[in-house]
Design a binder for these strands. Structure first.
Length: 491
RNA sequence: GCUCGUAUAGUGUAGUGGCCCAUCAUGAAGGACUCUCAUUCCUUCGACCCGGGUUCAAAUCCCGGUACGAGCACCA
């Protein structure tokens, strides 16, 4: 009996090591060089989920310490906070801007030099690479703390140009892993030419910490207890652990996840997307073809679906490649029960109803939930629209209405009862419909389908189900975007 | 090249020596229900990378191989 418990399928995320309820501090630290992407959502969701699980704290930290290679985007600070709240269901417990804390990082760099576990290195990157490969020390390594202080001051005073000096952490040049040998902690950036986009920072600093240093110091200062991140940062952990030993600190518990690729999307980087958007290849960060949170959200992907998706994948270190279908299935399960039904007739063909039939009818807004109410249609002039694709059979059942037989442009009403197995099709009366366009994406292109859409009063952003077509989000009264593009058939 | 990591059905995932001829989801196929090609429900399909070793017993531990990924940036 007890053994069965232990072997039962684990639900949800695994326990955190060394975690005490109420004392867990987690963080997610994106570079605000653009809005959040699908990939970012994993870090946000997993870390926030552990915060909830342990009643701990979750920090959103902007690692905005590069002004040239991956310069921050001013609007992204705001966007990311908004997207974080949307995705995790609440505000982060703390928000930290690395660029606000440069002086604090300087203090730690100073201490590092004073206590002789760091040094100012004036070798070029290429020169140092040689030392790293040959496991030998560079000449700067043996400078006295006093000399390092002087050189450090000169760095701060702008006496060096970018590339001419860097502060390194002394580790051990004979370490097995070449990545760990005397790694760089702070470097110079030409902030006159590449100012930080935050006006309060601008060109104020020339010396900037690198990720491994900034992140390590900040995690300690914020009391982070658990770091969960991509396994590409495994060597970062090792570098930072070495630094923690120097400072006499204890490194947080760490967990890693592997690389995730989505079948339908190739490789996207924030910098590349930014360039493509600026070049006009995409309509903006919320272009439905882009793997951004904004794009997914605009297509009607729900935060809850993203949460279930990532929680189901868990945090294995395996590199995986997932189909969007998995995300969509989670989304369907979130949206279906509240999505009002609506008719959209693609490639519409007009017919005239002939015979006896009621001039009014009522259809359910949702077949499984009568409390959502009804939609009422009127057939004043008897003109109706059918999908061209449905016309290969002459005997059809108009959904919720009547059996008909088609002759030329006439639709003869044969019976109101459903008394045979003829195919049921969706349809629209002219009175209750108007021309509309739905858009979707496929193979990185946007397509449009013209047709007739049932008149509706749904608010912008409402997720509806177009019967026999798919789920879509309302853009305006005559435009819709498909949520799950690959659910459309024959275009 | 050096270093690190991962390998369970098509795709993901559970499983840390016996309960496993292996879990759950997704997918595909079929069916039930349904006046939607939706939802719900049922059935079926399908996997422990390879080779050694340890052990009474291995998906689970060890060694070797192979494959894939990542780091070795004055990017994050």
């Amino acid at each position: 009996m007890e053994k069965r418990e232990t072997k039962a399928r684990r639900e949800g995320l695994p326990e955190l090591k060394n975690a005490t309820k109420g004392k867990v501090v987690l963080r997610f630290a994106p570079n605000p060089n653009g809005p959040l992407s699908f990939g970012h959502s994993r870090g946000l969701i997993i870390n926030a989920a552990y915060r909830d699980m342990y009643d701990g704290e979750f920090i959103l930290r902007f690692d905005d310490t590069d002004t040239k290679v991956k310069p921050p985007m001013l609007e992204a600070y705001e966007t990311i906070q908004e997207e974080t709240a949307w995705l995790t269901g609440r505000q982060p417990d703390r928000v930290v801007y690395a660029s606000d804390r440069i002086d604090i990082y300087y203090e730690h760099a100073t201490r590092m030099l004073e206590e002789n576990f760091g040094y100012v290195c004036r070798c070029t990157a290429d020169e140092f690479k040689e030392y790293r490969i040959s496991k030998s020390s560079c000449p700067c390594r043996t400078q006295s703390p006093q000399d390092n202080q002087i050189l450090w001051k000169r760095m701060l005073d702008g006496k060096f140009k970018p590339g001419e000096a860097v502060v390194r952490v002394k580790t051990d040049m004979t370490l097995k892993n070449p990545a760990l040998r005397d790694w760089p902690a702070l470097r110079l950036q030409d902030t006159a030419k590449h100012p930080h986009p935050r006006p309060e920072i601008g060109s104020r600093y020339m010396v900037w910490p690198l990720l491994d240093f900034q992140s390590a110091v900040e995690d300690h200062l914020q009391g982070v207890t658990h770091i969960i991140r991509g396994k590409d940062l495994m060597d970062s952990t090792r570098k930072q652990t070495l630094l923690y030993e120097h400072f006499g600190w204890t490194y947080p518990e760490t967990m890693y996840w592997g690389r995730v690729k989505v079948h339908e999307w190739g490789g996207f980087s924030t910098s590349q997307m930014r360039a493509d958007i600026e070049a006009g290849q995409y309509n903006g960060w919320d272009d439905p073809r882009l793997p951004t949170l904004a794009g997914l959200r605009k297509r009607g992907i729900q935060a809850m679906a993203l949460r279930q998706f990532w929680l189901e994948l868990g945090i294995t270190q395996k590199d995986i490649s997932v189909p969007l279908a998995t995300l969509y299935s989670h989304n369907v399960s979130v949206i279906d029960k509240t999505a009002p039904r609506l008719a959209f007739v693609r490639h519409p063909a007009a017919f005239q109803l002939v015979g006896d039939y009621p001039k009014e009818l009522a259809l359910p807004l949702h077949p499984n939930d009568a409390t959502m109410g009804q939609r009422r249609w009127t057939l004043t002039n008897g003109e109706i629209w059918l999908e061209s694709e449905d016309l290969d059979k002459m005997d059809l059942r108009l959904k919720e209405f009547a059996n008909i037989a088609l002759h030329d442009r006439e639709a003869r009403v044969e019976s109101m009862e459903r008394n045979d197995k003829r195919p049921i099709v969706h349809w629209l009366p002219t009175n209750n419909s108007k021309e509309a366009i739905i858009t979707g994406t496929r193979d990185n292109t946007i397509f449009h389908i013209e047709g007739r859409l049932e008149r509706h009063k749904h608010k912008v952003g409402t997720i509806v189900q177009l019967e026999r077509v798919g789920y879509a989000v309302v853009i305006d009264e005559s435009t819709l975007t498909l949520c799950h593009e690959d659910l459309t058939d024959d275009l």
